[in-house]
Simulated scan of single mutants.
Amino acid sequence: MTDFLKLSGRNILVMGVANKKSVAYHVAKTLEEVGANVIYSVRSEQRRESLAKLLPGREILICDVAQQVEIDALAAYISDNGWTIDGLLHSIAFADYSDGIKPFHETTRAQFLQAVDISCFSLVAICNALRGCFSDDASVVTIGISTTRMASESYGYMAPIKAALASSLAFLTKSFSKFSQVRFNSVAAGLLKTSASAGIPGYVDSYLFAESVIPRGKAVSTSEVADTAAFLLSPRSSGICAQQLIVDAGMEINYFDQDVVRRATDH
């Protein structure tokens, strides 16, 4: 069956591509393969220049989501060009780990609020600005994490922020339902090899442990997360709304695997 996902010709705004390892890059690649029109948005001119070399001929806009004026400018540009947005991928997160990972209670107000602003509130602000540009049945997908209840030191203070992001899906769905059928969902990804994650102190060790816990013995790939996001962005997922789809290859069911426990106790 051709165009099974029914994405051919649909306009999808992809926000958050940093490089070839980015989740957003893999999602955009999948979308282009099935015939979607991908509009890219990055945070800076420098990022646009680097992405233009990677993706020549694409429409690449600039929007620093920490600046409301830039979000408004992005929405105005899309509106002025008469584009209808059928889908939005929000793959944006930031946390300041410049001082290393500290105990959660030592998180500073500035660090926490900056991370909330960029990683969570940006989704609300972007969707509000674009509300007049979305098609009536548009799909909005953000990238979360597979669990926000696992108190992992290596993820610092981001899990509570990702929990807020997940909660916002229900509230965005409800408020948008007053005038549209726009859907909001999240791909809750297990540990991935990305440039962003590589910069988190202690992340590599956690990634290796996760891989040992996953029943198949192989970590989740970025392309697996991307394929799930593409499905959620498509009309084929029309019955899925205000949900998190966990993509962790079964990691959460296997923490007490005999071999894993034995290695830990022997150590």
Rank of each mutant, 00 (worst) to 15 (best):
F134S: 04
P103N: 09
F184E: 05
I126N: 00
S175W: 08
S186R: 10
C120S: 13
T194E: 01
K178A: 10
C127E: 00
A93P: 02
P160T: 06
F94H: 10
S177D: 15
T147K: 09
V124W: 06
F94I: 10
L192I: 01
G156W: 02
F179T: 12
D137E: 15
S146K: 02
A125L: 07
R109M: 14
K102T: 10
A189L: 06
N128Y: 06
Q114M: 12
P160Y: 04
L113V: 13
A166P: 00
K174T: 14
P160C: 04
S122N: 02
C133E: 07
A125K: 09
F94E: 07
A164R: 06
P103G: 05
F104H: 13
A164N: 06
F184S: 06
A188I: 02
S154F: 11
A125V: 01
G132I: 02
V182E: 05
S98Y: 13
A188L: 13
F94Q: 08
V187T: 08
V140R: 00
R149H: 13
A188G: 12
L130T: 00
V187N: 07
I145H: 02
G156S: 04
L165F: 03
K162P: 03
H105Y: 13
A166T: 04
A95Q: 14
E153L: 14
S139W: 05
M158T: 14
F179S: 14
I143V: 08
D117A: 07
G144Y: 00
V182A: 07
N185Q: 14
N185L: 11
L130R: 01
V141N: 00
F179A: 15
Y157P: 08
L191T: 10
S168H: 13
S119N: 04
D136I: 10
S122Q: 04
F104W: 09
A95K: 11
P160W: 02
F176I: 03
A163H: 06
G156C: 05
S154W: 13
Q181N: 15
S146Y: 11
S139Q: 01
A189C: 12
F112L: 15
S98K: 14
K174P: 05
F112D: 11
D136W: 09
A151C: 06
A110G: 07
S175Y: 06
D117I: 08
V116I: 09
A129L: 02
K174V: 14
A164E: 10
A115M: 03
N128F: 02
R183Y: 11
T194Q: 03
T173P: 00
C127V: 03
I161L: 05
K178V: 05
V116A: 12
S180A: 11
S98E: 12
Y155A: 07
C127W: 00
T147C: 11
V141S: 00
A164W: 08
Y97N: 15
I101W: 01
R131F: 04
A93K: 02
Q181Y: 14
A170G: 15
L169S: 04
P103Q: 04
V116T: 08
T147G: 03
L172F: 03
L169K: 05
S139Y: 04
A166C: 08
A188D: 14
A151F: 14
S197T: 09
L165Y: 01
A125S: 08
T108I: 03
N128K: 11
A188M: 13
C120I: 02
A115V: 05
